[in-house]
């Protein structure tokens, strides 16, 4: 965990509404593990007291990149950042994805929209490449299919409007596929909107396979101090708060107590 002044190397439209931001981060970059995030101070946004958390897309010895969509004031201002500008980063933060369990032979990725950016390093590192299920609203929201295929993943795409792949939610493709697998061998890694994560988590509990979910919550400090980003984690006595920024963002689906 470090704080580093990073220099923007590349910032461009990646696809549709999504942008790629790559920075030189020789201290943080080499430390990033799959599923971890960085906490970024948006330049020229002095009236904002909080940083903005982003999952790391790619990372290496020189630096790291993030994929983001413009969702609010922070990302709007981030759009204007240019190559050569300096961005203050904290990271890598959080507890990411575990390595493949010893008894598991079929890793599965499930992502909603640009959630698959948070799965890329995991996809790269996993010793076995299995199925990858990417869902989105439209074809515009399906990113990086070629990159995951190049790593050896069998990518299946769904879109809400049928503009790419199978029409429907990601579970429309996942369910029939899972029905034909040995579920004891399945270990699933997922990132995306909360309803999708819950749907994946429900299936894991119901069918008995292992699933790791990267949970997204509004965050303030990013280091476990402020207790903003808490979710309910099951305990023997009931539940306790767990911090997405420190104990997560990745949790085993069986730990999570979902709220309506």
């Amino acid at each position: 965990m470090n704080q580093e002044k990073t220099t923007v190397l590349e910032h461009r439209v990646f696809q549709g509404d999504y942008r790629l931001l790559r920075v030189a981060a020789p201290i943080i970059g080499p430390q990033v593990k799959p599923g971890q995030f960085v906490h970024l101070r948006v330049p020229r946004l002095e009236q904002a007291v909080l940083r903005r958390p982003f999952s790391v897309f790619k990372a290496d010895e020189e630096g790291l990149s993030i994929l983001y969509a413009t969702v609010g004031m922070g990302t709007e201002v981030l759009n204007s950042v240019e190559s050569g500008e300096v961005i203050d980063l904290m990271g890598p933060l959080g507890t990411g994805f575990p390595t493949l369990g010893k008894d598991k032979t079929l890793p599965v990725l499930v992502a909603g929209g640009y959630g698959n950016a948070a799965l890329y390093l995991q996809a790269k590192n996993l010793p076995i490449k299995g199925g990858a299920f990417f869902g989105g609203r439209t074809a515009q929201d399906i990113l990086c299919v070629g990159e995951f295929e190049a790593l050896g993943w069998d990518v299946r795409v769904t879109t809400d409007d049928g503009s790419l792949g199978t029409k429907g939610l990601v579970t429309a493709a996942l369910d029939p596929w899972l029905a034909e697998q040995d579920l004891d061998a399945v270990e699933l890694f997922s990132c995306g909107p909360n309803p999708m994560l819950k749907a994946v988590g429900d299936r894991a509990l119901e069918k008995g396979f292992t699933a790791w979910l990267s949970m997204d919550r509004n965050m303030a400090c990013g280091v476990g101090a402020c207790l903003t980003c808490v979710i309910k984690r099951k305990t023997e006595a009931g539940w306790e708060w767990a911090r997405c920024c420190k104990d997560g963002p990745v949790f085993n689906a069986e730990e999570i107590l979902w709220e309506d």
Binding site: V49, L50, N218, L227
Partner: peptide, 23 residues
């Protein structure tokens, strides 16, 4: 003490609101 339910913080102009509830 368990504290409040979420959301617990909200960013505002040059500030933030918090209602963590002393967990």
């Amino acid at each position: 003490h368990v504290g409040n339910q979420t959301p617990r913080t909200f960013e505002t102009a040059s500030g933030m609101l918090n209602a963590i509830g002393l967990p």
